[in-house]
Design a binder for these strands. Structure first.
Length: 493
DNA sequence: GTAGGGTTAG
């Protein structure tokens, strides 16, 4: 960059600006754009006479504003430049699309993609990534299917991400075979990392290791994918062993510690987690991020060290977000600390006045503490707003199809069998000593959000029809052990 | 000369 700036200065001092040498100016514009110097790029752009500005110059300037890492809001500027352009190229459309996708304006990106007069695989890959990021895996697969005959490394990565997120290991394996054929066993490191992530997220740890172990080169992202996959499966000891190996090969980064701290939390490795968090900056030179705070609060909260977790939150250099506060709130609920819980909920209700879940939780907490007046006043507010809660869903991949369930729904063709299985499972877990915690079920039901107090039986029913349980029961009925299950539970289809 | 890819907490 320094060399570039000096070069620009010398261009100006030699007086070239008085004889508009547009090739030179265009090159300077490219240079500033490539370095992310928005203001300098804008200045040079303004210096180019209007008749000399071509579509590439306009698009380059758009790219400056649209590129990631810039503060939000610059997408408006990108669009303004786009609107000013007389002739828009496919690349200009793509820059705007990429900017919208990156800055979280998903709906805008979708509209743009539909509006585009022409598309190519770059635009489709951007849109696929946006779909995946927003959890719309089905739409992502739809686009990828259109691109099936022009797949390259980039598209394969997007495809693998979609597989990882939807748990579709069958398509993921197909992509693996395709990649091996396409690249004659010399797979790109990013595709290999995406493969590790896909296998690990789909629960195929040994397949993930098989890819990982034969890789000729591994970087920090590869290690992170492996560690995060193991962390997700709760393999605490394996993660810590692998971490020790990793630091001999590459320098760990912030993502590494998100995986390490998260697995410490889920495996109850409190001392190790605490140690990693404390030495994050001094030993590894990493400033704790919101994700690290979230993990360590979760770690301490789960273990019942509520005060320590709270003092970490209060001492945070960045503002705690919803995830961090909810982690501690959940711990308060588990360890029955009403005082701190109430305090956190008030904070959450203030921070997110439109999120009714916190109002519901706060109201329940007041009820439990016998403060019915306070509980009722919140209920009145909720009723007057007529709020509806969007039901959560769980899905399971069986026989090449994704089966999706929401709490209490009976839409699945095998619904009757699923509920029979559910009854049987509940009978078994009750016998094993499970007592449902119905305190938190006061409002949330399967009816889409009406606010009222359930009777004990209804509360238990709502809890037992939870979407995840339905998906698991369907899995038990439909996978390899299905014959045994049907026999054992007397279910016939 | 301008556009697209892999890893992140609950």
């Amino acid at each position: 960059m320094d060399v570039g700036t000096k070069l620009h200065a010398s261009i100006i001092t030699t007086g070239l600006q008085t004889f508009p040498n547009t090739y030179l100016r265009n090159a300077v514009l490219q240079m500033y754009a490539a370095c992310g110097c928005v203001l300098s790029a804008r200045k040079v752009f303004n210096e180019i006479p209007l008749s000399y500005k071509d579509t590439v110059d306009w698009t380059t300037l758009m790219g400056c504003y649209a590129r990631g890492g810039l503060p939000c809001g610059l997408i408006d500027k990108t669009r303004r430049i786009f609107n000013e352009m007389k002739e828009k190229s496919l690349v200009s459309w793509t820059v705007l699309l990429g900017g919208s996708g990156e800055m979280g304006c998903f709906e805008n990106a979708r509209l743009l993609f539909d509006e585009m007069p022409d598309r190519n695989k770059v635009a489709s890959t951007i849109m696929t990534a946006a779909y995946i990021e927003n959890g719309l895996t089905k739409e992502a697969f739809g686009l990828l299917r259109e691109m099936v005959f022009e797949l390259n490394f980039v598209a394969l990565c997007s495809w693998l991400s979609a597989c990882a997120q939807s748990g579709n290991v069958i398509v993921g394996k197909w992509v693996h075979v395709y990649a091996l054929k396409m690249m004659k066993n010399e797979i790109d490191i990013m595709v290999e990392t995406a493969l590790i992530n896909m296998y690990a997220k789909c629960g195929r740890i040994s397949d993930a290791f098989r890819v990982f172990n034969v890789m000729p080169r591994r970087n920090v992202v590869t290690w992170n994918a492996m560690l995060s996959g193991l962390a997700m499966q709760g393999k605490g000891d394996t993660v810590l062993d692998l971490f020790a190996q990793m630091i001999r090969e590459v320098k760990p980064d912030d993502v590494t510690f998100t995986a390490v701290l998260s697995v410490c939390s889920h495996s109850g490795l409190v001392d190790q987690g605490r140690h990693f968090f404390r030495t994050l900056e001094s030993t590894y030179g990493i400033k704790p991020s919101i994700e690290h705070y979230s993990c360590v609060v979760d770690l301490l909260g789960r273990a019942g060290h509520l005060e320590e977790a709270e003092s970490i939150i209060r001492g945070m250099t960045i503002h705690p977000n919803e995830v961090v506060l909810v982690s501690l709130l959940t711990a308060c609920s588990v360890h029955k600390n009403l005082e701190l819980g109430e305090c956190l909920m008030k904070e959450l209700v203030q921070m997110y006045p439109d999120n009714t879940e916190y109002h519901v939780l706060l109201s329940n907490m007041y009820s439990l503490a016998g403060k019915n007046d306070k509980a009722n006043s919140i209920r009145v507010v909720l009723k007057s707003r007529g709020v509806k809660k969007v039901p959560g869903t769980s899905s399971i991949h069986v026989g090449g199809q994704i089966h999706c369930f929401s709490a209490g729904d009976k839409l699945h063709p095998q619904s009757q069998d699923i509920y029979m299985m559910l009854d049987e499972m509940i009978r078994k877990i009750r016998l094993a000593g499970y007592v449902p915690d119905t305190a938190c079920q006061k409002f949330s039901g399967s009816d889409g959000g009406e606010c009222y107090d359930y009777g004990q039986e209804e509360k238990e029913h709502a809890l037992f029809s939870h979407s995840e349980k339905l998906a698991v029961c369907f899995g038990l009925l439909s996978t390899r052990a299905a014959v045994f299950n049907r026999y054992a539970y007397g279910i016939n289809t």
